[in-house]
């Protein structure tokens, strides 16, 4: 089973952003992807007050294909904690998404740590945008990993263009860090990640549908992981994180 752990659904007219569940499904089908974690591009509370319902409806419309992650703003801490509980307990969401570029919340600051700890208590992973921008680098998110040892923390993009080696280093240091492969351009770094931290802690993602799941899948193919490791990276690990494993 192929699972894409990083896709987006959004509808914000003021930003000109519109990508639907059907857009994701089309891109998944073209790439041979069976299931995907989906999340908005905006934070709650924020530009799309209906973001929670948008993701919940998408997942309800495509059962066994789409699984919701709720994207939250840690500065609105109490509301975010309430929304996280509601999403995971009442609506079946499978994870938390945080993007420090849009929230301006440092991963090592108390509100983010409190929210990520709650995600761990609720049994869901936290997917961080992890790239080259301030507050999103692996060393920034490592502060969260150190403070929240019982929470699974996914480094989306595994460090972007220029911080991939640091993503590998912090993943070696903190066993609760998982690396996600989307967007970063180096196939061989996926193989390096598997060699250094184990195939069980590397997961496939595309950042689609504006990025191509078909192309992103090829990156893992080119990495040449071998059958067993590739099966874990392409879906086995994600199934466990989403609670789908038998």
């Amino acid at each position: 089973m192929i699972i894409d752990m990083h896709m987006h659904i959004e509808e914000v007219a003021s930003l000109g952003w519109k990508m639907s569940a059907d857009d994701c499904i089309r891109a998944m089908d073209a790439a041979g992807v069976d299931r995907a974690a989906v999340m908005t591009l905006t934070d709650l509370p924020g530009l799309n007050p209906a973001g929670l319902e948008l993701i919940a409806d998408a997942c309800a419309s495509h059962p066994d294909r789409l699984y919701g992650f709720i994207r939250l703003h840690p500065a609105h801490l109490q509301l975010s904690k309430d929304l996280l509980r509601q999403a995971t307990t009442d609506l079946g969401f499978k994870g938390l998404k945080l993007h420090p570029v849009s929230t301006l919340q440092h991963p090592g600051a108390p509100p983010t740590i409190e929210l990520v700890r709650l995600a761990g208590e609720l049994g869901v992973p936290t997917l961080f945008h992890c790239g080259d921008e301030p507050m999103t680098t692996p060393l920034s998110i490592a502060k969260t990993a150190a403070a929240c040892p019982d929470s699974i923390i996914i480094l989306g993009h595994m460090g972007g263009y220029f911080h991939v080696d640091e993503a590998l280093e912090v993943a070696e240091r903190y066993p609760n860090i998982v690396l996600e492969t989307s967007a970063m351009p180096y196939p061989e770094k996926i193989r390096t990640a598997v060699e250094r931290i184990g195939a069980e802690r590397v997961i496939f993602g595309s950042d689609g549908p504006v990025s191509s799941p078909s192309l992103e899948r090829q990156k893992v193919v080119i990495a040449g992981l071998g059958e067993a490791a590739a099966a874990l990276v392409m879906g086995g690990n994600a199934a466990a994180l989403l609670g789908l494993a038998a």
Binding site: P185, Y186, P187, S212, S214, L215, Q218, K219, I222
Partner: peptide, 14 residues
């Protein structure tokens, strides 16, 4: 800096 096979696929799959 980047990998030839993967970079070609950016164009082939778009």
């Amino acid at each position: 800096m980047f990998e030839m096979t993967y970079e070609r696929k950016r164009v082939d799959l778009a």
